[in-house]
Design a protein around this nucleic acid. Structure first.
Lengths: 211, 211
DNA sequence: TGGCATGCCTATGTATACAATCGTGTACAG
DNA sequence: CTGTACACGATTGTATACATAGGCATGCCA
């Protein structure tokens, strides 16, 4: 499964191609993606279950989140990232650690102002950390949460002074994982995610439109 | 949304109406539920995303879980239930606490051999505990995990000596929540879920078919 | 006799016709 | 001027026809 138009529509939604209150009518998407209504409906349905769009009355619109909802999602994610890091410290293979180290090295060489690359590799790092848990259920839950706020996350890493801290956090996290120190890995991950939430809130306070 | 046939199909899957390797062909379901292929496909797709069925080659079959997968799901659930209990201790309203107490009272009066009633009220208790967190994301994640193992859970509560322990756990949990003691509530919930996992594993060792 | 190729048949993927519903705008009455 | 009722249009929900692909059986060849 995973039809191409499902992926394309998801990418477009995550890339904020559609306005938050723009109705995603089947006719429009049908034309946009050159498919008939059936696969379009299928894609919409999947995105609805993923929490990326929602039905408002009859129409389907991209789902937006209030500040409260974003905080809520972040709080859940803090819990899961902590658990994932702790589990990765126990379950990670040599290959997992090597891949993580490689990604960190890659991140250290990026241009800190290139928000797009930052976000991209950052996500890759997280995803690899999740995989290192070798826990399908944890991976699934984290992917789910991540998707729901991905539309908002592009800017977090470019917040003044943030990127070096992120790199330091990851280095410490990898050290803890290398030592098999589950508790410390969890703590670092939890703090890292807490900080991310704080920054998001600060950004929101400075400019509510960043949501 | 949430078409009636989606619900019916889900209930049937959860009730193990279909054999684990029985192909759920659209034609068969079409006839069974008296609808056309379109809504049947929609229902199958949703169940697939919920992790209740899976595509094996071309056919769709009810998803089964290995012992390892069930352990994995339980471990994730332990984490989330702990977090939920801890959060409920902080966020629960008087009404939440009252509802939970009422459910516990109800459970104390059940016939411990009536597995079906036990499972039903137990789920209601958990669901109410989740709601008491007032955290949509936590609730969503827990519901998701719960669904994936619901097909297997009917027997856990009737394991010899288990039910009184469950009731005691819940009483202690409500006490902690009443005190606003987040840490203790979390600990009780975590231990409770750990015990449930142990029992499941014990049952599996005694008779692998119980999976 | 065993393995592989080929063709048919069945089940799914896609498109479209048809039905039902919901929102909207307008007109009329108070 | 405002509120309500009715009708029309647009959009989604459902059914079905058509296209495609995948699996299985059969038969041929080694």
């Amino acid at each position: 499964m995973a039809s191409p138009i499902h992926q394309r529509l998801r990418e477009d939604v995550l890339a904020s191609v559609f306005a938050p209150d723009e109705p995603l009518t089947e006719a429009k998407l049908t034309e946009r993606y050159g498919a008939s209504r059936t696969p379009v409906r299928e894609a919409l349905q999947r995105l609805e279950q993923d929490g990326l769009v929602e039905r408002r009355g009859k129409a389907v619109v991209v789902r937006t989140h209030s500040a409260e909802e974003i905080i809520d999602i972040y709080e859940s994610r803090i819990i899961l990232e902590q658990a994932a890091a702790a589990k990765a410290a126990v379950k990670a293979t040599a290959l997992d650690r090597q891949l993580l180290t490689g990604l960190l090295t890659q991140m250290q060489q990026l241009d800190p102002s290139d928000g797009r690359s930052l976000a991209e590799t950052n996500r890759a790092f997280h995803a690899q950390l999740w995989r290192a848990t070798h826990s399908p259920s944890l991976i699934g839950l984290l992917e789910r949460l991540d998707q729901q706020v991905r539309r908002y996350t592009l800017t977090t890493l470019t917040y003044p002074g943030r990127w070096p801290v992120v790199l330091a956090d990851y280095a410490e996290l990898l050290a803890a994982i290398g030592d098999g120190d589950s508790a410390r890995a969890g703590e670092v991950a939890a703090r890292h995610m807490s900080d991310a939430l704080d920054i998001r809130l600060k950004m929101y306070a400075e400019d509510p439109r960043t949501l």
